[in-house]
Design a protein around this nucleic acid. Structure first.
Lengths: 190, 190
DNA sequence: GCAAAAGTTCTAGCGGTGCTAGATTCGTGA
DNA sequence: TCACGAATCTAGCACCGCTAGAACTTTTGC
């Protein structure tokens, strides 16, 4: 049992190394710079090793995304629990969400912009994702009035996502970003 | 002057042909299927001809996007002008926007998801883009209350964009799409 | 009318991509 | 010590965006 477990441990460590290297390279130079050759060089293995861990490049991006869900959930939780009242809680999670996207653009892309099919609707991965969504939902709850909480949270999330992605794509001028967040907040807090 | 103008006309026609072929191929099989080789084959010219019209593949996508701005503006205008009242006008442009994104996903991607720098903030291209934004703004105006109209319109637009992209990326279940639009509407009409 | 010049389009190829088959090296158990 | 099985690498496939230079066509000057 010893040799086998050591091997499995080493394998897991190397997998983690790949994911971390991919994330760092993506954050430093964008996902288009994350090629299998450069990634293999970064972890000091040959390309085929990547494929013994992941089915392909998309699967690596997905693994990076899953890491990100946990980070985001943490940020949102911190923002919500330190807020004084219901309004500032919703404002806080909104600002935290936008700040996360700003701070880790490549990670955010892997999580929410990648076209590849993440198991969003399934039960497997989304533990951390679900946690993040629940944080949003708790912040939204006091302002739900009669509306369906899940749907309203999804709508608030979508609005944040839209603001974040349009701003980063150069479609919205960054200067007024905070004012747009404030407008959104006002409409959701009534 | 005759020969010269005929040449220019033929050149313009071929350019139009390239853009149309790119748009159709993208809509049929997605942008990842639009390679310079396949596109050249579709217009029955060799690859380098594409580069005598456009600087590169990104420039072709941009040309497709510009076409789309005009189409979208038209849809939004139709939706707004046929609405009975201020609330149904805002609902109408929202639904029209979402329908456009649903009907022409590849075109929508070129317009609003592509990372390449479209001159959004400049004065050159955005005639049609500006027209579309103005339609949104006119629909938002009656619900602006004291808020800055431009910023509020941008916020509404971003919310629509978020709903549309998250839904298409599989992040939000499509079934409840209309209910989310309704919730967004309710929050913006107060 | 015809060769030279100008302009246009093509063939062929560069360096890169994601991915993989088959050779090779390595740690392991008899 | 050595044969075996697993882990890893080398080398290569088909494709990508893009371009230099050859080949062809059209226009021009005589």
């Amino acid at each position: 049992m010893s040799i086998q477990t050591r091997r499995e441990r080493e394998r897991a460590e190397r997998e983690k190394l790949i994911v971390t290297a991919a994330r760092e390279l993506a954050e430093a130079e964008g996902w288009e710079a994350v090629t299998t050759r450069r990634l293999a060089e970064a972890v000091e293995y040959s390309q085929p090793v990547l494929y013994s861990h992941f089915k392909g490049k998309d699967a690596i991006m997905r693994a990076v995304a899953v890491e990100g869900f946990a980070d985001l959930a943490e940020d949102l939780r911190a923002a919500r629990t330190t807020a004084r009242d219901a309004v500032s809680a919703l404002a806080g999670v909104g600002a935290a969400y936008a700040a996360f996207a700003e701070r880790c653009p490549a990670l955010y892309d892997a999580m929410f912009r990648q076209n590849v099919d993440l198991p969003f609707a399934t039960l497997e991965v989304p533990a951390a994702l679900r946690a993040g969504f629940d944080e949003l939902a708790e912040a939204v709850r006091p302002h739900a009035r009669g509306d369906d909480l899940g749907l309203l949270t999804e709508t608030y999330w979508a609005a944040l996502h839209g603001l974040v992605t349009l701003t980063r794509g150069g479609r919205l001028p960054r200067e007024q970003h905070d004012r747009r967040l404030a407008l959104l907040l006002a409409r959701f807090t009534g």
